[in-house]
Design a protein around this nucleic acid. Structure first.
Length: 574
RNA sequence: GCGCCCUUAGCUCAGUUGGAUAGAGCAUCGGUUUUCUAAACCGAGGGUCGUAGGUUCGAAUCCUUCAGGGCGCGCCA
């Protein structure tokens, strides 16, 4: 349910029926016409730009048209008690008490589903996919939370969503990882000095993994790397994936599917994908030009299989094979995406870090080629996270490497604050994350501020001995809302629109912003009671007006829905 | 050299399928508490929406130019 759409439909139908009277030859399918919230100072419930849009395409005066529309609407639709023409020809509409009540009642009945934008598509969201060679860092957290909330949002609307993690457990990096563990084990067991060479992993967590593997494999001597490789690979991977999963869990994130690159290779999925692309002439043998940027000493002009991604808008064609004929990382990823396509998703979403921007065109091209342009892959990039403490850039001196791990973050900041703050910015821009601010219990900290508004509402419910599900009777004879209540109600009406644009554009950051605004209105109303007794909600442990109670319940409903989607908890007492 | 992202108040950012006088928070200044939770509220000042053009009734939003910042540009993963 969305009151803007509802009234837009009514107005459009009415206009359609009366197009001769309005002298409109061209309705252009009502494209561009919207009903929305007018600027606050006008004190109207809704506003419509129909006369502006229609006047333009019919080349008539917008104000004259607006006047005619005003009369027409007032005569035929009983929902509005007053219409005003403002600015260049906006129609500002005021709802009757009857329609206000009916809209409030609809939300109260809808409760858990208020704002839902019905849809039932199959989505696959791949996110995090951090390399299994070490713990998650702060940057991964942002993508992780973004992906998780996107999943919640799409699920809320009724879609099927698979949350997926691609484990890059194949290739050289895993060999180097296992080698590093091996050398650390030798260091512990045989006191051999660990010498950090190129491609080895320096982190202290490698030592921890080594210790664990020694403990669980008491009979293994670790004499020869090649002999121990399979064991080391399996065990080390398990250790770091456990670590990653436990960090994710602490952030409130659980994936539905972990997809292993090794399995992909074992099942010959890359070959299948390449054969399919060959058949369609998207993959052919050929030569590529040398790379444009920095010089690459290992580059060789050799015949190899090439994906013609320029056919799908990429800047250059892409190699599927390395010098030695083995598959490139990209080729494997093509195999993986073929599998996704075969699993019948209508929409694929990949959440990437800023350092993978350059990869987007080729993988999107691949999905188009694999699905005959049927499946839509959307790559969303999360920009960097910059850490601050006391307003100063924050670097943790970690011998582990120069990253700050998710664990370091989780040690200092709780899950709720991390989630809310990481979302409190568009994914397109860099995010400053201040350790101290996030822990403050004040208005400066938006997480707290929103939670606190709900705690206040909860305390009201306690005093009234009521709960959010109790039925509220609104009597039209006595119905009246004061200024604060009206503002809150209009904000509440906006909620479905927030959900719609947030899910349509994959921009969950709109939700925290909205919740903050709603909380502000509520806090303002609450505080009014401090200045003037007549604004207190309660008298002698009873609510003064049922309308007030209804408005408060509406706020609670929306805040619950919103925080639920964000995956942030809502304490009833603070 | 090329691609993607960004440039809006002193600071951090919303706002971009073209709409009304461009909005928040922080910071600054000034107020509010015998409390339904002041962990809150109210008020004030603060703007060439990076630059220069264009499109039109109307541009922060669309197009082009230039400038500044970030990330990337493998036959690595």
């Amino acid at each position: 349910m969305n009151i803007f759409e509802e009234y837009l439909k009514k107005i459009n139908t009415l206009v359609d029926k009366n197009k001769e009277i309005l002298k409109l030859d061209n309705l252009n399918n009502f494209k561009g016409i919207v009903v929305e919230i007018p600027p606050e100072e006008f004190n109207f419930d809704l506003s419509c730009n129909a006369s502006l849009v229609l006047a333009k395409i019919n080349k008539i005066n917008p104000k004259e048209l607006a006047n005619k529309m005003k009369d027409l609407i007032l005569k035929n639709l009983s929902d509005f008690e007053n219409i005003d023409i403002a600015g260049p020809g906006f129609l500002n509409l005021k709802l009757t008490n009857k329609s206000l009540i009916s809209n409030i009642n609809k939300i109260l009945e809808n409760k858990k589903f208020y704002g839902k934008k019905n849809s039932n598509k199959n989505y696959n969201i791949e996110f995090v996919s951090a390399n299994p060679t070490g713990p998650m860092h702060v940057g991964h957290c942002r993508g992780a939370i973004y992906g998780d909330v996107l999943a919640n949002l799409l699920k809320f609307n009724g879609n099927n969503v698979t949350k997926e993690y691609y484990i890059n457990d194949y290739g050289n990096q895993i060999k180097n990882f296992a080698k590093s563990v091996f050398l650390r084990i030798r260091e512990i067991k045989y006191k051999e000095k660990f010498v950090l060479r190129e491609n080895l992993y320096p982190g202290e967590y490698i030592i921890e993994i080594g210790k664990k593997i020694i403990d669980t494999n008491k009979n293994e001597k670790f004499e020869n790397f090649d002999k121990s490789f399979q064991l080391l690979k399996k065990e080390s991977l398990k250790c770091s994936m456990d670590l990653i999963k436990s960090d994710l869990k602490k952030l409130g994130i659980e994936h539905d599917n972990f997809f292993s690159e090794t399995k992909l290779i074992e099942n010959k999925m890359v070959d299948k994908a390449v054969n399919y692309l060959k058949k369609n002439n998207y993959v052919e043998e050929g030569y590529l030009d040398p790379p444009k940027g920095e010089k690459d000493k290992t580059w060789k002009k050799t015949k190899r299989l090439i994906f013609k991604s320029t056919l799908f808008g990429d800047d250059t064609d892409r190699a599927m094979q390395k010098n030695d004929g083995s598959w490139t990382y990209f080729a494997n990823d093509v195999g993986y995406h073929m599998d996704k396509v075969n699993r019948n998703y209508e929409n694929l979403i990949n959440v990437l870090g800023a350092d993978h921007t350059g990869y987007i065109k080729r993988i999107t091209a691949a999905v188009n080629a694999l699905s005959n342009n049927k499946v839509k892959l959307n790559c969303k990039v999360c920009q960097l996270v910059k850490l601050f403490k006391n307003g100063k850039p924050f670097k943790m001196s970690k011998r582990a490497g120069d990253f700050i791990s998710a664990q370091d973050l989780l040690k200092e900041v709780n899950k709720d604050s991390i989630r809310f703050m990481m979302l409190n910015r568009s994914n397109d821009v860099e995010l400053d994350f201040d350790f101290d601010k996030v822990l403050e219990k004040s208005k400066d900290n938006p997480v707290f501020y929103v939670q606190y508004s709900f705690a206040r509402i909860s305390s009201l419910f306690r005093m009234l001995d009521k709960n959010i599900n109790d039925k509220i009777d609104l009597d039209i004879k006595e119905f009246s809302l004061n200024e604060n209540e009206m503002k809150i109600l209009r904000k509440v009406f906006e909620w479905p629109k927030i959900i719609e644009t947030a899910s349509f554009k994959y921009e969950p950051h709109k939700i925290p912003y909205y919740l903050y605004e709603l909380a502000t209105l509520f806090h303002a109303y609450w505080s009014k009671g401090n200045e003037d007794q007549k604004y207190k909600f309660i008298e002698g442990s009873k609510i003064k007006k049922n309308e007030t109670l209804a408005i408060i319940v509406l706020v609670a409903i929306v805040i619950q829905r919103g925080m639920n989607i964000l995956g942030v908890s809502l304490p009833t007492k603070m």
